[in-house]
């Protein structure tokens, strides 16, 4: 199954994971991405996840709902999620499609995403208790 170029990568950086999608994924591949990412969060005890979707030219209802699921699952496992790199045209299409990223945090790019996560991880344990 893992022949050819890698579809996505999940890298660890401190207590964070940086998950990058490299190319357009079909639904099955998106679900595999979700599985791998959730498993890695548990294994690495990650506190935060940045998902870089800059390579995606389409974020349709399934991709968006998968990202929301990932955010929700990660939250239940104690990790915060930030989506970065949504392209301007993709953002326009998502809004016209009527999609809401809902609970998902978003940031413009990887740098801002990591900064946002830093804030969240610094603030949230204290805020919780």
């Amino acid at each position: 199954m893992t022949v050819g170029p890698r579809l996505f990568s999940i890298l660890r950086q401190g207590t964070c994971l940086i998950a990058s999608i490299h190319t357009a994924l079909d639904d099955s591949q998106l679900l595999r991405f979700q599985e791998d990412l959730i498993a890695t969060i548990g294994r690495d005890r990650a506190r935060g996840v940045v998902i870089d979707v800059a390579a995606l030219d389409v974020l349709d209802s399934f991709a968006t709902s998968t990202l929301r699921d990932i955010g929700e699952m990660a939250r239940l496992r104690g990790a915060a999620t930030v989506i970065v790199g949504i392209q301007p045209d993709v953002a326009i299409a998502m809004v016209r499609l009527g999609l809401r990223t809902g609970v998902l945090e978003t940031a413009l790019d990887l740098e801002e995403g990591l900064a946002l996560l830093g804030d969240r991880m610094a603030g949230s344990p204290a805020a919780r208790r």
């Binding site: 639904d27 389409v58 349709d60 209802s61 392209q87 045209d89 326009i92 299409a93 499609l97």
Partner: peptide
């Protein structure tokens, strides 16, 4: 580019129903 993305997104939604 905005229209292109919109078209691709609409196709994605509709074709998914077939699968």
């Amino acid at each position: 580019p905005t229209d292109l993305t919109g078209i691709a997104t609409a196709v994605s939604e509709v074709v998914r129903n077939i699968v």
